[in-house]
Nucleic acid binder design. Structure first.
Lengths: 335, 335
DNA sequence: TACAGTTACGGACCGCGTAAGCATA
DNA sequence: TATGCTTACGCGGTCCGTAACTGTA
């Protein structure tokens, strides 16, 4: 049994049991992979795949177990390499992030700009998707970091670092009757057609629940994954928008008004997660600090270390987290 | 980086940074190890050991981290091999157990006899020592199972399966005044010189504590690790023995009387532990079932599986565990 | 006919063991 | 002088890539 053989094995599993594809992925020859797989099965004395003719048809139960452990070995091997790269002052590497639209569009650009200036040689990969898609990326070890809001239960085995919290805001066209309302309530809101994020993920279904608790049935006329689209339809007068505050940019003030919905819906928390046991290179830790300033390198390292033993909980006070808000004072007036 | 290199690295660390010793342990040549270590350090770009002249002097911080992960990789590799051996119906293997004197002398012989009949080809290793020594064996991955009483906090990262509980008994020579006492109390006991196990391990210090709670200072005139020695000194009239009930064998009735100490001291639990993430081969699971019949293969497998995710707790009711006692009715009279 | 995997073969590489060299106590 | 690591070198194995072969849609 060699690391090479385990790498090949995992590659086969990741290539849909297609040895040729695995060979291409690994920039090597197909017969080489075939042979090593055969050798491994011989040494272990177990069939890892069932064959249909010559092709691989399915993974055997034994194979599933072996592959799972092979993955762990490959991860640890990767960890050793990362660890060594970092300690030897290597400036190259990759940072791969899976995140949702809201973060990718409204929060990450500034952070990434700063990061690229500081670490120009680091290859940055950003994968945007739903929470479920991000969870898959995490499970497949395709991303280093997951950044999302709510829905933590989708991410078992991740070290979760709360980054910031926010209250949804209400978006209406300037001059909309709601702008005259002193204190917004759910019944008032429910009397308007609503435009908001797609329900389903835990974070957003809490919105539905808030209405339900007061016996209200909101009239949601349009849902999207994307605040830009929501804003477009709000501008068209199709309904009242409920979005993340980060999505309200200063230029939106020209035609859109943002009303506070604080207290109407539960406050949500955006977090950053990484795989327990993964080695955090210096630039990764620094990225986290750029993303959430209270997560200093020391705090992050501490959390990573604790997580190898127990569940990270109560490392710091979540209630004391910075509260994220949208554009409050227009830049033009301040200047 | 190869599995071979990591194996060498771990061997060096386990041989006190002596490459020659590591080579002997692995039945290979010393220059080979040297070369592979050099190659590994080159590839990683990190010094894993500090040198003093040509000899290895100490492990660098980087080395410590790399070695820890290398150990994990070696364990997983071993797991894969075990897994495969088991599934391919391999009847050979090794079962290595670290345990205390009480278990090794009074409980395990019967279990091992049965096990050897059932699995004659399995190589059985028994290492007897104090809880601390067993914990070291576990940490060094030298044993598959640890069997001990109390002192669980010495064994982090182990899946602990409670096996049975017991109350200490009081041993005195036949005709001793205490045999006439109706209900034994701590003050009465404290008025006699005592002979018991070495204090220090958590299990035994609970004994001292029981006395202290009633403001008593027991007069312990002799301590040993070994019930046989304790019995010898009790026979000599040196004092009153406090031992595990399993140590009172039927032949001891000839000259020793066992008095119940139930209620005087806290009831203790003997458990069996194995490393989280370790692959349990069929014969290992069967051994556990032989050792504690309520730990059926199904229960053990379930516990092992759960342990990969969370702490095993409340899997079954500890209060319902079988209560272990010593020789109650003499075989001769019953026959 | 394409596609996927196995078998066969030659070359390069690499890891191992022996033997000799060198530093340290 | 003994111990322990490094360097040098030859051998054997092995891994890889190319090429030809075989079984399947």
């Amino acid at each position: 049994m060699t690391l090479q053989q385990l790498k090949y094995l995992v590659a086969i599993a990741d290539s849909g049991l297609n040895i040729t594809a695995a060979a291409e992925r690994l920039y090597t020859s197909q017969p080489g992979i075939s042979k090593q797989l055969k050798l491994l099965e011989q040494e272990l004395g177990v069939q890892l795949f069932t064959r249909k003719g010559k092709s691989l048809a399915a993974i055997t139960p034994a194979g599933r177990d072996v592959i799972a452990r092979a993955r762990r070995i490959m991860r640890e091997a990767e960890n050793i390499r990362n660890l060594a790269s970092d300690l030897s002052g290597e400036q190259e590497g990759t940072l791969s992030i899976g995140t949702t639209h809201t973060q990718a569009r409204h929060v990450l650009p500034d952070v990434i700009k700063e990061f690229r200036e500081r670490y120009p040689k680091i290859n940055l990969e950003l994968h945007q998707g739903t929470s479920e898609q991000i969870a898959e990326l995490v499970a497949a070890n395709r991303v280093d970091f997951a950044i999302a809001t709510g829905s933590r239960q989708l991410f078992p085995g991740l070290v979760i670092l709360p980054c910031f919290r926010w209250d949804r805001i209400i978006l209406v066209p300037n001059g909309h009757p709601l702008t005259a309302v002193k204190s917004l309530t759910l019944p008032v809101l429910a009397s308007y057609p609503l435009v908001t994020y797609v329900f389903g993920t835990t974070g957003e279904s809490s919105l539905k629940k808030a209405f339900a608790e007061q016996g209200l049935e909101p009239n949601v006329v349009f849902t999207a994954r994307d605040a830009d689209i929501i804003k477009t339809y709000v501008r068209m007068g199709m309904g009242v928008g409920i979005v993340a505050p980060m999505a309200y940019e200063c230029q939106d003030r020209k035609d859109l008004a943002a009303l506070s919905a604080e207290g109407l819906f539960p406050r949500v928390t955006t977090w950053l997660g990484f795989r327990r046991d993964s080695v955090l290179r210096r630039y990764m830790v620094d990225f986290i600090a750029m993303f959430a300033s209270h997560l200093s390198p020391q705090v992050t390292r501490k959390a990573a270390q604790l997580a190898t033993q127990v569940e990270v909980d109560g490392l710091f006070d979540e209630a004391a987290l910075p509260l994220k808000v949208g554009c409050e004072a227009p830049e033009s007036e301040a200047a």
